[in-house]
Design a protein around this nucleic acid. Structure first.
Lengths: 239, 239
DNA sequence: TTGTGCTGACTGAACGTTCAGTCACCAATG
DNA sequence: CATTGGTGACTGAACGTTCAGTCAGCACAA
């Protein structure tokens, strides 16, 4: 039911603490997160946390690092031969059409956590790094697409920034407003708009940029499904 | 130095409280915001706040409503004849290339505030409404563009969702990671990508979608400046 | 006098953090 | 083998602080 095997059967105390923190975050969100509530999520005592971590902040920072590591190792990377499909694969991974309750709660908590970076230097550093990792992944994909001649000669850095920003925006909005139903259409529009920029002018690519005009909500047509990854649901996929 | 005239010379106590809240938010952020610190920002006492507002939450909700009202009345609306320029105008308004310190702090605080909506129903309602307002504005612009024949027949609702999402993402990211330098390029790329989707195929519009490929950072060329609004800086422009 | 805007002192609860001490375990010593 | 000393994981009970919220009452206007 958890995020990883490590969470279901923690090997050591540190892993158990990470798992407990994850659960407490899901249950109570960041705003409602207390040391006591983390302790409540595992069989050891509250004081123990201070035996292993200097402070609440220290613990949370460790947790973020732990999650980032997990994320870095599970985001889709090598299983595509088509750059456009790879891009769609990543999008589908971090921006699933629907979120099961656990993952929805966790996404919300991560958004709260990231918001702390607005006034916390250490958090800010973390999310800067996390953001850069993701940016670079996408940049690489776009670069490949260009080298392979399937994309126009756009600026990969800029495209990557745009994509990362859109993803962050979607996570932020879906966590803080009632816009869940718009996510599938958003992703489709993002893909269509991107392709319109990346292919365009009949250069290459089979994408028909106007294909989803008529579908007001829901998935435009049957153009997805090709790139769905099998394990896209067992995982937090947060950044 | 404030946001509006009302802030520099509050007409009544309620306006003074709003102004004090604004200042306290800028100085301490949401995480550091206490009733005491709001009281410190104006000549009356802490208890007075409870005379006028039921609770801290009540006060903050009023503040959000106050800010939204202000925002609704200052976002660019009618001063463009070209839909594309109007779109750029809105983008430039909510996503300025640089943020003076006060506005940067305020933006951060607003992001923190919005993050609270992840686990607070009342906040969530507010930001849903706020988001919808903005979405509708953009949708209207796109609709006009289509009617005027300058845009292709895209889905205005979807385009609006995409734009709003990108803006939210940019605000979120610039507040929570060290990405300030990338904002101008991001906006340029967003504009270019949008235009590539909205015009395309040599249908209409003078936009050369590839114009800014070579400009790695900073503004791509001289294509902005036409649409800068004179008062784009005196205002929080938050949502 | 009655009411209104306002204040300073106060309260209760929540929470991060500390600390003295227990317990299981292990290695070295006699 | 039995004893001793030492170590690290772990605990329960506090401590100190911070804060939202309360309340009795003051000053002044009608």
């Amino acid at each position: 039911m958890g995020l990883t095997d490590a969470f279901d059967e923690p090997a050591d105390t540190q892993e158990a603490v990470m798992a407990a923190t994850y659960r407490a975050l899901c249950r109570h969100g960041y705003a409602g997160l207390t040391i006591q509530r983390i302790a409540d999520e595992f069989p050891k005592s509250k004081s123990l946390l201070y035996h292993h971590y200097e402070s609440k902040d220290d613990l949370l920072l460790e947790f973020l690092a732990f999650m980032l590591e997990h994320f870095e190792s599970t985001v889709p990377s090598r299983e595509y031969d088509d750059a456009a499909a790879h891009l769609r694969g990543i999008l589908g991974y971090v921006l699933p059409d629907t979120l099961d309750p656990e993952r929805r709660e966790f996404t919300r908590a991560m958004v709260e956590l990231q918001a702390q970076a607005a006034h916390d230097e250490a958090y800010r550093e973390h999310f800067t790094r996390s953001s850069r990792f993701f940016h670079d992944r996408i940049e690489t994909v776009v670069e490949c697409g260009i080298e392979e001649g399937v994309f126009r000669e756009v600026d990969p850095d800029r495209i990557a920034t745009l994509v990362v920003t859109a993803i962050d925006g979607a996570r932020f909005r879906r966590s803080t407003a009632e816009v869940e139903e718009t996510v599938p259409a958003l992703r489709a529009e993002l893909e269509a708009t991107l392709e319109s920029r990346l292919f365009a002018d009949g250069t290459a690519g089979s994408s028909d940029a106007s294909r989803d005009v008529e579908g007001v909500d829901g998935r435009p047509n049957g153009e997805r499904g090709v790139d769905e990854r099998p394990d896209a649901s067992d995982d937090g996929g947060e950044r």
